[in-house]
Amino acid sequence: MDHSTTRSPGACDEYVDLLARSVDGVLTETERVRLDAHAASCAACRQALADQQLIRTSLSEALSLDASPAFVARVLSQLPESGRWFDRLDFRRLTWRLSPVAAGLALAAAFVVATGQPTVTDAAGPDSIPPAALSFDEVIESSDMVTLLWQAEGGQVEAGGNGEGEVIP
């Protein structure tokens, strides 16, 4: 990938790797000697070196943060309680959230019994799914909490590869 440069316009291509690593202090002795010899006679590479140094020194300062116990607490508060996903299901809350659906199912059943055929009973229009047609799976899928729990358990939802076999979510 070639991104044309910039302010170090004249820096010599063949020294780019040394110029970058030089300010990180990771040149071998041979590389150091080679770069020094070149920089002595190349103003553009000397300028590039100064630019590399300035940014390297300044950047970590610009993005340094204090430790944040509040952040740690926030992350930990999002973790599921220990135990398997089935144990983590809050059935009281689940029951509460699904109670309108259950009420609809009961009403629909009563209506079917009374009229002898399934009919759309609410005012949502002809395209709405009749409550009686909602399977248990669909009811379950409609609960975002269940979805979250499922994702929390599996963690594979957005998994991708990094080419090394390690799965990076």
Binding site: M1, H3, T5, T6, R7, S8, A11, V16, D17, L19, A20, R21, D24, V26, A48, D51, Q52, L54, I55, R56, L59, N162, G163, E164
Partner: peptide, 30 residues
């Protein structure tokens, strides 16, 4: 991170790491 670690992290050759770092710093300076 070391250069070789960055190469692993970004899944690119180390020469590309060096080039991106050099050009990135140069552009920041600009």
């Amino acid at each position: 991170f070391e250069y070789r670690e960055i190469a692993e992290l970004l899944d690119i050759p180390i020469g590309t790491v060096e080039s991106r770092i050099f050009r990135g710093r140069a552009r920041l300076r600009e």
